[in-house]
């Protein structure tokens, strides 16, 4: 379907690539070089990511926008990789680090906020005002910070002086700051961001992200993201089961790891009651494909046990305003050394 014939997007899914969609290691120079030289068929997607995107993209009124810190020189290989995985995207924005280098903008080489924030805002400016958004990032860089700031800027929950101070603290160049403010003012006020998923590539403790409120959901795998999105009515039970099947068939996931992942969300207070019921119904219904993974009663029993063993229902996480000025450390560019330390 060409862009002209596509219906206006009702939902936009924004994805980062490295450590969110792709299993990438670039904490050392050697890893960085190896990643740059990898061919498309050598790159590995994070288990379940491709299946989740395919299910999210199943509806025609959905857009997939990818914003990655990978250099523009990698566009061809990344496009090939996404094609190999059957992932169709609508936008793929990569970082022009060669241009930054030529212009002597060395801070921009590492900076995340100064790169991603204007790109996100510009993409939002092109989207219908009522389009909802779900964002996917990881715990290696400043994704939780950038995505939350973006969401709160569009919703006008954050003031201009605070945005200025944040951008200055994040070492964003002054012309990029002006670009951010200008685009921001052109965007109609809305509150489109429903969830921000943070793939815990570094296994950062989930509580670290509590300061960003319940909109940010740290995940240990994409089965967890699929479950939460099902609870948010963005996916159906059979679609979640397809993500689960990919994890089982391609990444060695089993009843233990899946039921533990489910219980982890429950313990963090995410509303999984209705999700569990709908999954059981879907498993019991027609569709022999689920039987291929494991006898259905075993799946239901494993998940039921994890629910029962918790006793009472946990309290949901509390909503909170984000104090961006107290989180400036999260916005500053990180050195390779700092990444390795974390």
């Amino acid at each position: 379907m060409s862009d002209e014939t596509k219906p206006a997007p009702r939902r936009i899914y924004r994805w980062d690539l490295d450590k969110t969609y792709l299993q990438t290691e670039f904490d050392t120079l050697r890893q960085l070089v190896r990643t740059a030289l990898q061919r498309a068929n050598e790159k590995k997607a994070v288990p379940g990511a491709a299946a989740l995107i395919r299910e999210l993209k199943a509806s025609p009124d959905v857009r997939l926008c990818i914003v990655s810190g990978s250099p523009t020189q990698m566009r061809k290989v990344l496009m090939e990789k996404l094609k190999l995985d059957g992932v169709e995207f609508d936008e793929l924005v990569l970082k022009d680090n060669l241009r930054n280098l030529v212009r002597g903008r060395f801070k921009a080489l590492r900076g995340q906020v100064g790169y991603k924030l204007p790109v996100l805002l510009e993409s939002r400016a092109r989207a219908p005002a009522d389009a909802e958004e779900v964002l996917f990032g990881d715990d290696a860089e400043a994704d939780a910070f950038v995505y939350s700031l973006y969401a709160d800027m569009v919703a006008r929950r954050v003031s201009e002086p605070v945005v200025y101070r944040v951008l200055e603290a994040a070492e964003v160049y002054s012309d990029d700051i002006e670009r951010v403010i200008q685009v921001w003012h052109s965007i109609p006020q809305a509150d489109p961001v429903r969830r921000i998923f943070i793939n815990l590539d570094r296994l950062t403790p989930p509580a670290y992200f509590a300061k960003y409120g319940p909109r940010v959901v740290p995940i240990f795998n994409y089965f967890q993201a699929a479950l939460v999105l099902m609870g948010d009515k963005f996916l159906t039970a059979p679609q979640v089961l397809k993500v689960m099947i990919e994890l089982v068939q391609t990444a060695g996931y089993n009843l233990l790891t899946l039921s533990n992942s489910f219980q982890d969300l429950l313990r963090r207070g995410l509303p999984m009651g209705a999700v569990a019921e709908a999954l059981v119904e879907a498993l019991k219904g027609p569709g022999g494909m689920f039987q291929a993974v494991r006898p259905v009663p075993d799946i239901i029993a494993a998940f039921s046990k994890r629910v029962a063993s918790l006793g009472s229902e946990p309290a949901p996480p509390k909503a909170r305003d984000i104090d961006y000025l107290s989180l400036l450390d999260d916005a500053r560019p990180r050195t390779h050394k700092a990444r390795r330390r974390s």
Binding site: R202, L203, T204, P205, P206, A207, Y208, A210, F220, N221, Y253, L256, T257, S259, N260, S261, Q263, D264, R267, R306, S309, L310, G311, P314
Partner: peptide
Amino acid sequence: HALLVGDRAQIDEALATIRHNAERVAVHH
């Protein structure tokens, strides 16, 4: 895999702040 048997509140409070792989942890309250 670790099956942690004990008071859920205390377990979750500790787990929330330490690195772990939730895919290999279950809690029995």
